[in-house]
C-alpha cells in the first residue's frame, strides 16, 4: 500500500499545493461534512501544543470522524520507556490516520516508515510543521489572490523560527522577494541564504523595522523575539522593542498588505494593530482548520472531486 503520509510539504509540486489550496477553499465554504463518518483519527501529542491539537481535532470532528489520542505523554507508556515504534504500531491497530506532534526531529519520518497508516506531521521538534506551512500558504493565497511575485517581509526571530524557514522553502517556486528583518543575533541562518541563492530567490536583509522599510510589503510575517534566544542579554534589552509592530507604522503600507503571525503573540504586535484591516493573524489561525481538513482528507485518499460532489453536507 502506498503510504500517503505528510511528513514535509517542501517538495510538493505547485500542482499539488494548488490542489490542496482548492480543497481548503471547498472546506472554507462548507466546513461541516460527513466525509469521515466511521473513521477514527488519532492525535498523538508527545509534546503539548494546545493550538495545533485543537485545530486538528476540530478538523476531524467537522469531517465526521471520531478522535482518540493523548495530549500529555506523561499519561502514556512512552513515559515507561516504550519506543516510538511500538506506540505507533499499537495505535495503527485502532486508527485510520495518525496526527503526531513529537519533540524529536525526524520522528514523523520514522513513524511513517513503521506503519501503513498515514501519519500527518503536526510538528517534529524544531524540524518541520507542514500543516502550519499549508495554512500560511492558504492565508497568503486567499488574501493576495495568488502565490506569485509577492514581497514577503519576515520579521523578528529568523534564526530559530521554524515557520519562517518552512514558508521560505515552500515559496521558492513562486518568485517571491523576501525581506529578512531581524536583530543581528537572530538573523536568517546562512544555510537558508544559500538555499535562496541556489533557487534564485531574491532576498534583502535589513535590521531597521520602520514605516518606510515595510511600505512595499504584501505580507508581513511577524515572529516572536524571545529573551531565552539571546546569549547576550544586553543585546536583547537593546533590540527587544525594535521589532514590535505598531498601528502607526501602517500609514504607508500597501492596501492589500496583510499581517501574519503563527501565534501565540506576546508583545510583538501591539493590540491596536488588531483593529487594522491589515491584521490577519486570527483569520490565519481559522484557515488552519480548512488546511487541516484538506490534509486529513488527502492522506485518506479523499479527492477534490469527492469533496466537490459531496451530497452529504451538513
Amino acid at each position: 500500500m502506498e503510504n500517503r503520509s505528510v511528513v514535509s510539504i517542501a517538495d510538493y509540486s505547485k500542482e499539488k499545493i494548488q490542489y490542496l489550496l482548492d480543497m481548503a477553499t471547498e472546506f472554507e465554504a462548507r466546513p461541516n461534512r460527513r466525509l469521515l463518518e466511521g473513521k477514527v483519527v488519532a492525535t498523538l501529542f508527545f509534546e503539548p501544543s494546545t493550538r495545533t491539537r485543537l485545530s486538528f481535532e476540530t478538523a476531524a470532528n467537522r469531517l465526521g470522524a471520531r478522535v482518540i489520542g493523548f495530549s500529555d505523554p506523561k499519561a502514556t507508556s512512552s513515559s515507561k520507556g516504550e519506543t516510538l515504534k511500538d506506540t505507533i504500531k499499537m495505535v495503527s491497530n485502532y486508527a485510520d490516520v495518525i496526527v503526531m506532534r513529537h519533540y524529536l526531529e525526524g520522528a514523523a519520518q520514522y513513524a511513517s516508515e513503521v506503519t501503513n497508516v498515514p501519519i500527518i506531521n503536526a510538528g517534529d521538534g524544531a524540524n518541520l510543521h507542514p500543516s502550519q506551512t499549508m495554512l500560511d500558504l492558504y492565508s497568503i493565497y486567499k488574501t493576495q489572490g495568488t502565490l506569485y511575485n509577492l514581497n514577503i517581509y519576515m520579521v523578528g526571530d529568523l534564526k530559530y523560527g521554524r515557520t519562517v524557514h518552512s514558508l521560505l522553502m515552500s515559496m521558492r517556486k513562486y518568485n517571491p522577494t523576501f525581506h529578512f528583518i531581524a536583530p543581528k543575533e537572530l538573523e536568517m541562518p546562512e544555510e537558508y541564504k544559500i538555499y535562496c541563492k541556489q533557487n534564485n530567490i531574491n532576498y534583502i536583509e535589513q535590521q531597521d523595522f520602520t514605516e518606510d522599510t515595510i511600505a512595499d510589503a504584501d505580507i508581513i510575517y511577524m515572529t516572536r523575539v524571545q529573551r531565552e534566544r539571546f546569549s547576550d542579554l544586553m543585546e536583547y534589552e537593546r533590540v527587544k522593542d525594535a521589532y514590535i509592530l505598531k498601528a502607526d507604522m501602517l500609514g504607508k503600507c500597501r492596501d492589500n498588505m496583510k499581517i501574519l503571525h503563527p501565534l501565540p503573540r506576546v508583545n510583538e504586535i501591539e493590540y491596536d494593530v488588531d483593529e487594522s484591516k491589515h491584521a490577519y493573524y486570527f483569520e490565519q489561525a481559522q484557515n488552519g482548520l480548512y488546511a487541516r481538513e484538506a490534509l486529513i482528507c488527502d492522506v485518506l485518499g479523499i479527492t477534490l472531486d469527492d469533496i466537490k460532489n459531496d451530497k452529504n453536507i451538513k
Binding site: 519506543t83 513529537h102 524529536l104 526531529e105
Partner: peptide, 12 residues
C-alpha cells in the same frame, strides 16, 4: 550529530 534527532533516541 544532532542530539535531538530521533535516531539518537530510538533503537533504529
Amino acid at each position: 550529530a544532532n542530539p535531538v534527532c530521533i535516531t539518537n533516541n530510538e533503537p533504529m
